[in-house]
Simulated assay, not measured.
Amino acid sequence: MTSLRTSLDDLLEPIISDWTIRDLLEWLGDDSRTHDDALRRPLSVIDAALTGTSWQQEPSTIALVRSIASAVQTAPRLRNMRLDDLLGHPLDVRIAQLGAKPVANRPIARFERETEPQVA
């Protein structure tokens, strides 16, 4: 049985949990990293948290990088999100892998007050 007490740093290794998604994508810009099989697991976790989907077959590292980049292109506000904020507690990561609502589709908190219709 897998322990849910895994630290986020252990889960993402060699990726650093306080990076933003922008930092991650810049780091992945090195071609040698996009073909590194050791990145498959941490990128799968990040991809699941961003998209809320799971792959039918194990994806390649490059497919995961493209999926993450596509999610960020669709929701640019995610670029500056830190990975530890995206993933939170490892239990949250596990829930994301099970099909939770993707971050890109979650509503943004609105603090504006709605205007009430004026009565003439």
Rank of each mutant, 00 (worst) to 15 (best):
M1G: 14
M1S: 12
M1K: 11
S3T: 08
R5S: 14
L8G: 00
D9P: 04
L11W: 02
P14W: 08
I15P: 00
S17I: 03
W19C: 01
L24N: 00
L24C: 07
E26K: 10
E26R: 11
E26F: 09
G29Q: 13
D30I: 10
D31E: 12
D36N: 11
D36T: 09
L39Y: 04
R40C: 12
R40G: 13
R41H: 09
R41Y: 05
P42H: 02
P42L: 04
S44E: 06
D47E: 06
L50K: 03
L50Y: 05
T51W: 07
S54C: 15
Q56E: 13
Q56P: 10
E58L: 09
E58P: 15
P59Q: 07
T61A: 09
V65E: 01
A69T: 07
S70F: 07
Q73W: 08
A75L: 05
R77K: 12
R82E: 04
L83Q: 00
D84R: 03
L86C: 00
H89P: 11
H89Y: 11
H89Q: 15
L91K: 09
V93M: 13
R94W: 04
A96Q: 04
L98M: 14
P102I: 06
A104F: 07
R106V: 11
P107D: 11
E112Q: 12
P117F: 06
P117L: 08
A120P: 14
A120T: 15
